[in-house]
Design a binder for these strands. Structure first.
Lengths: 197, 197, 197, 197
DNA sequence: AATGAATGAGATTTCATTCAT
DNA sequence: TATGAATGAAATCTCATTCAT
């Protein structure tokens, strides 16, 4: 005899977020190559079949996780964003926000780095992700117009303004560097020296 | 008494290098997750079993490939290395060597980036790899002593002196940036502005 | 609150027993060396992957099969076991039970013999298996105390009381011996003559 | 340029016996299932290809090893064999010879037991092997004719006269039993009691 | 005779996904 | 919605054997 009783049928936010965390954790620990659907399900405490209730397939799970983090990151970077401050102060604020985000969410950040450097990144709609960060680009544009920032290609500017942080915040890449306010301030000085006119 | 002086059937250098190229190519195209031993073997035109004549296992193949590229890269960077030039000229030379290497060996470079950002990187004996690049660190050290370069943590200096190149040279990350002599010179200006006193 | 009362798709007893029979059959026919998981699966009519739903790995399948037979055998030997009968009658009863079991389940018995003589046997928790046969050891003990059985090491007693059956019941080892009531009775006479005082 | 110089071309007895010992050792340690040609070759210190100089194939190596041990064993059993002694003394002598052989060559004996209980045994020409032991059968025959030994099937007699030794000499099967002269004498008493009229 | 290289075949096991409930 | 069972496909790796020298 079969008994089949339930109350409620809504998707469970707890399961969804357990899957998110499990995905990030496993991919960081053992990489994309070894992170199977079964292992992620076990880590999240659900059945492998349940994943297919929330995501179309494994690829969807990974890409969704990436995009969710990117959105989260963009919000963190733009906290207390204020157009009217001096350019340097705006950038300094973003810089510190990023350090804070990475420090507090190292796992998320590591996932994003690994994802970005893998062929999975080609599955992401880049335009969608980039729009999250548009204000940051606009600041640089304004800086150029005001002759405060060097008038060079945007890719060059971001390579010096934003990318060094991702290195410095990665404990795997930096052995000596300690993530404290003083060091972050120092590093920002270099970033600013690089791009300022 | 028995005397044996023979030349046995020896390992085939062509097979070895075919495996190297196949590994790089496939990992770049489909990632670690999908690059199976069988596929690599097929790409290299050998039997999957043959891989195990040359490498202990898949991990060994990947790690060996990584280390081989790192060694190759370090040699390229240190081409025409001359202690007696002014610091800025030495660094500028390395900077151009790196651009040249990445331009000519984009596949190798992409493999290294993906590898570095994956958990595979923990399998590498970092000390062994780092020693290849010791001269580059020493230049910065000298610069600090001569009060030409900012006296800050080495990790910070390299984050601005070497890391931006890896971003700029990656067509996946930079859509607008064109790899030509002028742009490279410009980018170096920013790097130097960042670290110089 | 969510209430779940359901009966899930449950493991299939038929599959489990098909795997048991297939394992015994194949190992007897072609030996451990050639009995691959794939072949066992094919013989049982399931997918190779299904075996891993029921058993942790191949070793677990083999060991579990061995233990299951040993338990089955012990139950058969102790059928109609009655402490109060004369010692000789108890042992004679066990002796006949064993012959009957082996005759009716020659495949099981052959599997056990091959397993016991292979390095797989070291994987079994011997204490667990031996406890099944404790009553048989106790009978001998009682016989010694009552001065009916020779007061010698237990290993010697069992070597004569139980082991000869395993030889006689093995058609591969005995070409002339026919498994009939008269011969079994005769053989028991020798066993009894060996151990009685 | 290839240099290929040798003196002598005869098969090397040392290699042959190294292969014999390696086969016995490995099969005892890891079983037939895991004893690959490569592992045996490595254990013997030769190339896998060399095995095929001495044996037709793997099966031939295993069967030859078995037969060699059986021949060796038969010679040991029949040491000091003397038709004219009383039956009991002849058998007692064989019994002690067997204990001695097994004690001194436990590895050989364990290999034989594992081989006999595996389907490999069907590959052996049984008649060839049995002829080595003909004198032992003849003794029993004589005993029956002289009305010293019970007139029962030969298989029964050997099951009590020879087989118990194989159990008692196996340390894996007997935990308490110690292989010393007194215990062996005792065990022989039981064997004799079993078969004597 | 002896062997390191090479490999097709096949080993064990895990995969992503679907099914039945 | 949720899941344990089930599986074809494919993963990594080892196998027995042959080849070229």
């Amino acid at each position: 005899m079969i008994v089949y009783l339930r109350i409620m049928r809504t998707k469970d936010d707890e399961k969804d977020s357990a899957l998110f965390e499990a995905t990030v954790k496993l991919v960081n620990e053992i990489g994309f190559a070894s992170s199977s659907v079964s292992k992620i399900a076990r880590e999240a405490g659900v059945s492998p079949a349940t994943i297919y209730v929330y995501y179309k397939n494994k690829e969807d799970l990974l890409v969704s996780t990436y995009i969710a983090i990117k959105l989260d990151l963009s919000k963190a970077l733009l906290r207390d964003f204020n157009d009217h401050l001096p350019i340097r102060d705006i950038l300094r604020n973003v810089w510190f926000n990023m350090f804070e985000y990475i420090s507090n969410n190292l796992e998320y950040y590591k996932f994003v780095e690994q994802f970005s450097n893998s062929p999975f990144s080609s599955l992401v709609d880049k335009q969608e992700v980039e729009q999250y960060f548009v204000p940051l680009v606009k600041v640089l544009q304004t800086g150029i117009e005001q002759k405060i920032i060097k008038n060079v290609n945007f890719d060059i500017l971001t390579a010096f303004m934003y990318h060094p942080i991702t290195v410095l915040a990665n404990p795997g890449l930096c052995q000596d560097f300690e993530l404290n306010a003083e060091n972050i301030e120092t590093a920002f000085t270099l970033a600013w020296d690089a791009i300022k006119l």
